[in-house]
């Protein structure tokens, strides 16, 4: 049973199909780099997997159950374009709140542990709006990993992170993979992302046109996969 299975998913915005029968199967423990140009539908697909949007047609199952099931949602961690923390709450309060909402058993301990992992323990009582951008990003990462999710859905997570935040995220992702988590990460072939990836999937105009293992060529040459598909005759 795959960890995530999207079966012929269509998503219409009005009459425009952003996803046209996208099919993706992600085995448990894999780390998928979801590639594609802007407008290909990466964000749309991730949002559907994260239960932020319903597919117009097709089905998404996570661990064999509907992705919309409450218990499944508790096992998913989502990091989108926005950082997803409240400016007027302290770092600690933010994590307590999200811990409570994600059904984390001992929220105080979990929050403290998360803050330590991302290096924000010193500023745990500082308000998020006072943080620098890099600190805000680390707090966002802390929030996404707080409940030790078995599935991580990340939308261009490495884009516009500072080096400290990149290091923190890279380490957290590696540890999560070591513990058997499944990761789907959309990316513009940032090196750190490609290093972690075990599979790649290429989304083009709403369809998955390639899935397969991430090869050394892809790591060495960022545009390799895109060129493969561009040279194909129309």
């Amino acid at each position: 049973m795959s960890a995530i299975a999207a079966d012929r998913v269509w998503k219409y915005f009005g009459d425009y199909p952003a996803l046209r029968g996208a099919t993706l199967e992600v085995p448990a423990g894999a780390c998928v780099a979801l590639l594609g140009r802007n407008g290909a539908g990466k964000t749309t697909l991730l949002r559907i997997l994260a239960n932020l949007s319903k597919p117009s047609k097709g089905e998404v199952t996570v661990f064999g159950e509907s992705a919309r099931d409450e218990k499944i949602r508790a096992r998913i961690g989502y990091l989108g374009h926005g950082i997803g923390v409240y400016d007027d709450l302290s770092a600690f309060e933010n994590l307590i709140l999200f811990g409570q909402l994600m059904n984390v058993p001992d929220t105080k301990a979990a929050a403290n542990a998360a803050l330590e992992r991302v290096g924000l323990t010193r500023v745990r009582d500082g308000f998020a709006r006072e943080f620098s951008r890099g600190m805000r990003q680390r707090l966002a990462v802390a929030r996404a990993f707080l409940h030790n999710p078995e599935i991580l859905l990340l939308d261009e997570p490495f884009t516009s992170l500072d080096d400290r935040a990149i290091a923190v995220l890279h380490e957290l992702l590696r540890d999560a993979l070591a513990k058997g988590a499944t990761i789907v990460m959309s990316t513009h072939q940032i090196r750190e992302a490609m290093e972690l990836a075990t599979q790649v999937a290429l989304l083009e105009r709403g369809k998955i046109v390639h899935t397969g293992p991430r090869t050394p060529e892809m790591l060495a040459d960022p545009g390799w996969l895109y060129r493969m598909y561009e040279e194909k005759p129309q």
Binding site: R47, A50, N51, L52, E70, K71, R73, A74, I76, Y78, G80, H81, G82, I83, G84, V85, Y86, D87, F98, L101, M102, N103, R143
Partner: peptide, 15 residues
């Protein structure tokens, strides 16, 4: 709306 918190809330198990 700021920081896309609404997305995180909707993605959570909370109905």
């Amino acid at each position: 709306v700021p920081n896309d918190c609404l997305d995180v809330l909707i993605a959570s198990p909370m109905p």
